[in-house]
């Protein structure tokens, strides 16, 4: 597809986006404590499942989709970049609504954000060479295209600066940190909705010109992510509440990080435009699909969440060794062996 002279993001949009990235990442940091980092190790088994879904499956899926749908190289590279992204604070909110394990979601976000420093450059170098070569063939005599690994690393570090600042605020004042977290979420939502609606309206011609395969890739990446996270964690023995958290964490990627990387490392408009377009499409569809998935999971999860909560409260009040014995047939098979039922301690 041909972008011509289209300017995907005007200077104003870029500024807005930059502010949003800083605010979102700051808000994310404001919700984190050192205890969350420690909790990662306590839940290492589940976090590992999430890790495999996020950094094992998602990039592979992105790579596969790009191949099968024969995406243009820049779009393909953007898709793979999205696939390698860590989770963001959005997934924590959706997990809350889906009655998933929010603490686990936070742990996974924490772990994946740190791991991303290593994993993103590594995975990009693993999956993109094929498409980079394609660009080389197309350009023939033009300047050589390479994935600027060092720049990506720098932009990732830059993105982590507001996160660290948020954590410091959280350390200083809990009340302000909570306010910052909520304000950030609220502002981010307004900016996201604004950016999506304005770009979609402004570039309706581009929407029409985008081949269906690109839409398909943008939609399926998230949806397959949800499905894989949900079922893979089930086969690996994760209880329902954690299943829901892992599912959402896998499917929802930290979009702002992608924008940050793109804007900071690819100055060439011809390169960055298709990549931005892919990211915008993904962001648009993920907002819708994750809302729907969350609603489904929420409905399905009500009973499980109540059972788990009851067990937690019983153990807290009656002693850690208390076992809640429900009447025969009260618990459905899917949660009878759930660790949250008292079979073994919170893992």
């Amino acid at each position: 597809m041909n972008f011509g002279d289209t300017v995907i993001l005007h200077a104003v949009d870029q500024a807005l986006l930059a502010v949003m990235i800083v605010v979102i990442m700051f808000g994310m940091g404001a919700g984190l404590t050192l205890a969350d980092f420690r909790a990662v190790f306590r839940r290492r088994r589940l976090v590992a499942i999430g890790f495999v879904s996020q950094f094992g499956f998602m990039p592979l899926l992105a790579f596969g989709l790009a191949h099968v749908l024969s995406l243009e190289p820049y779009l393909a590279i953007a898709l793979i970049l999205i696939g390698t992204l860590p989770g963001g604070s959005t997934s924590n909110m959706f997990t809350y609504f889906a009655r998933g394990n929010v603490a686990l979601s936070i742990s996974m976000t924490t772990a994946s954000t740190l791991a991303a420093l290593v994993m993103i450059p590594l995975l990009l170098n693993l999956y993109t060479p094929y498409f980079v070569k394609q660009i080389g063939v197309e350009l023939e005599n033009g300047p050589e295209f390479v994935i600027p690994t060092a720049n990506i690393l720098v932009s990732l570090l830059l993105v982590l600066v507001p996160v660290a600042a948020g954590m410091i605020l959280r350390h200083r004042s809990r009340g302000w940190a909570k306010a910052a977290e909520d304000t950030a979420g609220f502002m981010a939502m307004i900016v996201i909705l604004f950016l999506i609606s304005t770009t979609m309206i402004r570039h309706h011609a581009l929407v029409a010109a985008t081949p269906p395969s690109v839409f398909l890739a943008a939609i399926t990446l998230g949806l397959f992510g949800f499905g894989f996270g949900y079922h893979a964690s089930y086969f690996l023995g994760a209880p329902p509440m954690d299943q829901r958290a892992i599912s959402l964490e896998t499917g929802i990627q930290n979009g702002p990080v992608a924008f940050a990387i793109l804007l900071l490392t690819f100055p060439d408009a011809a390169v960055v435009n298709p990549m931005l377009w892919m990211t915008i499409l993904y962001s648009t569809f993920i907002v819708c699909s994750s809302s729907i998935v969350t609603l489904c999971l929420r409905k399905r999860g009500q009973f499980d969440a109540e059972v788990a909560k009851n067990t937690v409260v019983h153990r807290r009040l009656f002693g850690p060794d208390y076992t809640t014995r429900y009447p025969d047939g009260f618990l459905p098979a899917r949660i009878r062996k759930d660790p949250a039922q008292g079979a073994f301690k919170d893992g």
Binding site: H314, R316, L317, F318, Y322, R325, P327
Partner: peptide, 20 residues
């Protein structure tokens, strides 16, 4: 007969513990 060992009532002891 139906609920057997489940707690029916609970009262507060000291230190945040309860007696079912």
């Amino acid at each position: 007969e139906r609920f057997g060992d489940l707690p029916a009532f609970a009262t507060r002891l000291r230190g945040g513990r309860w007696q079912p």
